[in-house]
Every structure is written in structure tokens, then in C-alpha cells.
């Protein structure tokens, strides 16, 4: 069975953006292109203020993803949970759309009697296990993140451990913002193995502004480029869902 690909941006940050486009709008732009935006706010000794919180929640909401603000210690557990939860959410959305096409009247899983839901859930579970996943990791490297980077590294390691236990394919790429020259800088190209990021993290320098919005916009083009190349060879991803369920 050919499986489609879920696309996610995982944004790890510790505060408010202060440069460029509105990141919430950029997250909405991502959603329009079928890319889910998940946001994790990391705290250590500092606390994320109200404005930062609102931005984090706003990005996840308009990006169709999941957000959570945690202390650095809980980051590993959170990163993998958020990613999986967003996957299930997206798949559930796809299944819901299919259901409402079959049943009509905008019916979703919740409108089915509880006994019937189980079977639908099994389909979602099965898809979550086998679907291909692309995660573009976007790490904030502004000055205040310096202390947290080792924890971020560990959490990403842990993420690949969790996702690689699935039978579906995974591809990861890593970007940091602000980059040395541009708003965003590619650190690791699409790869199934996140282990290769160990050496990258020791080279990272922190400092500068927090251009979250431009970073998301840039990241999107990266998905696009890849998609246009691949779409020459393969069918459109949406098609798959219509056929497979």
C-alpha cells in the first residue's frame, strides 16, 4: 500500500518574535498548504510572558497543530507527545472529511454511536503507524536559548527514537533562526536519521533577534521545493487519502 505523507513544522522557541511578518499569519499560511505547525515553548529559569504565550498558542491554533509550554526538563517527553498528537489530529481530520462525504450532513466521528467509533479509531491508529512523516524542526537560537540547546538536542534525539519505532518512513530536517546571514539557516537536510545532528549542535552559536514569522515562511518554501520535485514522480498526496480509506 502506498501511503501519503504528513508534513509538520516543529517550532521550538522561548519567547516572542520581534522581527518580520506576523508568525500567526505565517502558521495559517502553512496550514493552507497542508502543513501542520506545532509549537513548543521552553522555559528554564525564565518564564514566558503573556504575549509570548498568546503567540505560541496562536501559531498552533492557526497552524492546525498542537502547542505546549514546558520546563526544559520535560522537553523530551513533550516533543514526542506533541508530534504524535498532531499526527493523530491530522489523520482524524482526514478521516472525518471522508466520513462526512460518505454520511453527508457534516457528520464526524463524534456523531457516530460510541460503539462504531472504535472501528474508525483503529483505522486512524493504523494510519498513524504506517503513514510517511516529514518533520521540519525549527529551533530558535536567539541569545536566551543558549542554556537550553543541549536539552533541545536530547529531546530531538528522543523524538527520532519514538518515531523510528513506527513502521512508516520518517524524514527530518533541521533549521535554526536567526541564521548567520539570513533569517533562517539550514543545518540538516532531509534525512531519516536525526542522530546526525549531534555534531551540528556543538557548532551552533546563539544570539540575534527572533524572526519567527520569516523563519516559518522560509521553511514552507523548503517543503514546496521538495514537493514539486517529488510530484513529478508520484501522485498528489491528497489523492491517496481518498482512495485508501
Amino acid at each position: 500500500m502506498r501511503t501519503g505523507t504528513l508534513k509538520q513544522i516543529l517550532l521550538i522557541t522561548d519567547g516572542c518574535s520581534n522581527q518580520g511578518e506576523d508568525p500567526i499569519a505565517m502558521a495559517a499560511l502553512a496550514k493552507e498548504q497542508g502543513i501542520t505547525v506545532n509549537v513548543i515553548g521552553v522555559m528554564e529559569n525564565d518564564v514566558i510572558d503573556d504575549q509570548g504565550m498568546q503567540e505560541i498558542e496562536g501559531m498552533a491554533m492557526s497552524g492546525g497543530g498542537v502547542s505546549q509550554v514546558v520546563y526544559a526538563k520535560q522537553l523530551s517527553q513533550t516533543v514526542q507527545m506533541v508530534t504524535r498528537k498532531a499526527m493523530t489530529q491530522t489523520l482524524q481530520g482526514v478521516v472525518n472529511r471522508e466520513l462526512s462525504q460518505i454520511l453527508g450532513n457534516r457528520q464526524t466521528v463524534e456523531d457516530l454511536p460510541p460503539d462504531k467509533r472504535g472501528e474508525v479509531m483503529e483505522v486512524v491508529d493504523e494510519l498513524g503507524e504506517t503513514v510517511e512523516l516529514e518533520v521540519l524542526i525549527l529551533v530558535d537560537t536567539s541569545a536566551s536559548m543558549k542554556q537550553k540547546l543541549p536539552t533541545v538536542k536530547e529531546a530531538l534525539f528522543d523524538l527520532s527514537l519514538s518515531l523510528n519505532a513506527r513502521s512508516g518512513q520518517n524524514r527530518f530536517s533541521l533549521f535554526v533562526f536567526p541564521g548567520k546571514k539570513n533569517d533562517v539557516e539550514k543545518m540538516l537536510d532531509w534525512t531519516p536519521k536525526l542522530e546526525s545532528l549531534t555534531s551540528i549542535f556543538s557548532k551552533l552559536t546563539t544570539g540575534g533577534t527572533t524572526p519567527t514569522g520569516p523563519a516559518i515562511r522560509e521553511a514552507l518554501t523548503y517543503f514546496k521545493k521538495k514537493k514539486s520535485l517529488r510530484s513529478l514522480l508520484s501522485r498528489d498526496d491528497d489523492e491517496f487519502y481518498e482512495e485508501s480509506i
Binding site: 493523530t88 489530529q89 482524524q92 466521528v109 463524534e110 460510541p114 467509533r117 472504535g118 474508525v120 479509531m121 483503529e122 486512524v124 491508529d125
Partner: peptide, 13 residues
């Protein structure tokens, strides 16, 4: 989160 309820019910069943 109806999803997690359904998923846990599946397991219990």
C-alpha cells in the same frame, strides 16, 4: 479529546 477515549475503550475491549 474524544480520540483518546475511543482509543482507550478499544484497548479495554
Amino acid at each position: 479529546n474524544g480520540i483518546s477515549v475511543t482509543s482507550e475503550v478499544n484497548v479495554l475491549k
